[in-house]
C-alpha cells in the first residue's frame, strides 16, 4: 500500500519533470521553426483556430444569452437590470471566455492534435522522419503546439465577443433593457485590467492545452487503444489544469 503510494508519487514527479523538459525543448526549437517553417505554423493556426470557430461561435452565443437571461432575472430583483451588460461583460471577459474556450479547445483541437500525433507514431511516420534525418519534434510537434498557442487567445476573444452579442440580443431585443444603459454600464465597469486578466488567462490556457495535447500524442502508446487513451487524457488533464490555473491567476489578479 505504502509502496504503491511511493511508486505513484515517484511516477508523478518523473512525468512532471519529463513534461517540463519537453516544454523546454519546444521553446528551444520555436525560433528556428518560426523562421524556417512559418508556413507549417500558419497551417496549424488554421487547423486549431479557424476549424474550431463554429463550435466557439455557437457555444459563445448561447453562453452569452444565458448570462443575459440569468443576469436580467437576478438583477431585476434589485431593480438593477440596466447593469446586466456590465455583469455579462465582466463574466465573459475575465472568466467564462478563457475557461470555456479552453475546455472547448481541448475537446475540438486538443483531441485532434493528440490523436494525429499518436497515430503518426503508431504508423511509424515519426520513426520514418527520424530516419530521413528530420527531427519530428521540429517538423510535427512544434508547429502544432505554436498553432494552438496562437489560436487559443484569438478563439477566447471571439467567444467573449459573440457572447456579448448573445447577451445583447436577449437583454436588449427580447427583454427590453435600454440599449444605451446596456453598453454604457459595460464601458464604465469593464477596465483595461479586466481585459488584461482575460488575455493572460487565455494565453496561459492556450499554452497548457496545446502542450498537454502534443505531449499526450507524442508519448502515446503506439496502438489503437493507446491513442484512444491519450486522447481521453488530453481532455481530462486539460480540464483539470485549466481550472487550477484559473483559480491561481484569479487569486493573483484580485
Amino acid at each position: 500500500m505504502l509502496r504503491d503510494l511511493y511508486y505513484t508519487a515517484f511516477e508523478f514527479v518523473r512525468t512532471f519533470g519529463a513534461l517540463q523538459l519537453f516544454f523546454l525543448r519546444l521553446l528551444i526549437y520555436t525560433p528556428a521553426v518560426l523562421s524556417r517553417r512559418f508556413g507549417l505554423v500558419i497551417g496549424q493556426v488554421h487547423n486549431a483556430g479557424a476549424l474550431s470557430l463554429v463550435i466557439i461561435v455557437i457555444c459563445g452565443f448561447f453562453v452569452g444569452a444565458v448570462l443575459g437571461l440569468q443576469g436580467f432575472s437576478n438583477l431585476s430583483r434589485f431593480n438593477a437590470e440596466d447593469s446586466v451588460g456590465a455583469v455579462a461583460a465582466l463574466a465573459l471577459v475575465k472568466e467564462l471566455g478563457p475557461v470555456i474556450t479552453a475546455l472547448l479547445f481541448a475537446g475540438r483541437a486538443g483531441t485532434a492534435l493528440s490523436s494525429e500525433i499518436g497515430l503518426m507514431k503508431a504508423t511509424d511516420q515519426l520513426s520514418a522522419m527520424e530516419m530521413m534525418a528530420v527531427n519530428p519534434i521540429r517538423r510535427v510537434v512544434v508547429p502544432r503546439f505554436l498553432g494552438g498557442v496562437v489560436a487559443m487567445p484569438l478563439l477566447a476573444a471571439v467567444f467573449s465577443m459573440v457572447g456579448l452579442l448573445g447577451a445583447h440580443l436577449v437583454c436588449v431585443s427580447l427583454l427590453g433593457v435600454d440599449v444605451g444603459s446596456f453598453w454604457q454600464q459595460m464601458q464604465q465597469s469593464v477596465e483595461i485590467a479586466d481585459i488584461n486578466e482575460g488575455i493572460v488567462k487565455s494565453v496561459v490556457f492556450g499554452i497548457a492545452a496545446s502542450l498537454l495535447a502534443v505531449w499526450e500524442g507524442y508519448n502515446a502508446i503506439p496502438t489503437a487503444e493507446g491513442v484512444g487513451r491519450a486522447t481521453t487524457r488530453t481532455v481530462v488533464l486539460t480540464a483539470i489544469v485549466v481550472l487550477i490555473f484559473d483559480f491561481m491567476i484569479t487569486a493573483v489578479a484580485i
Binding site: 504508423t123 511509424d124 511516420q125 522522419m129 527520424e130 530516419m131 530521413m132 534525418a133
Partner: peptide, 14 residues
C-alpha cells in the same frame, strides 16, 4: 542517416 535510405515494413508514408 542522410546516407541511409530505409524502407519501412508498412511504408510509413506521411
Amino acid at each position: 542517416r542522410k546516407r541511409f535510405g530505409v524502407l519501412f515494413q508498412n511504408g510509413a508514408l506521411l
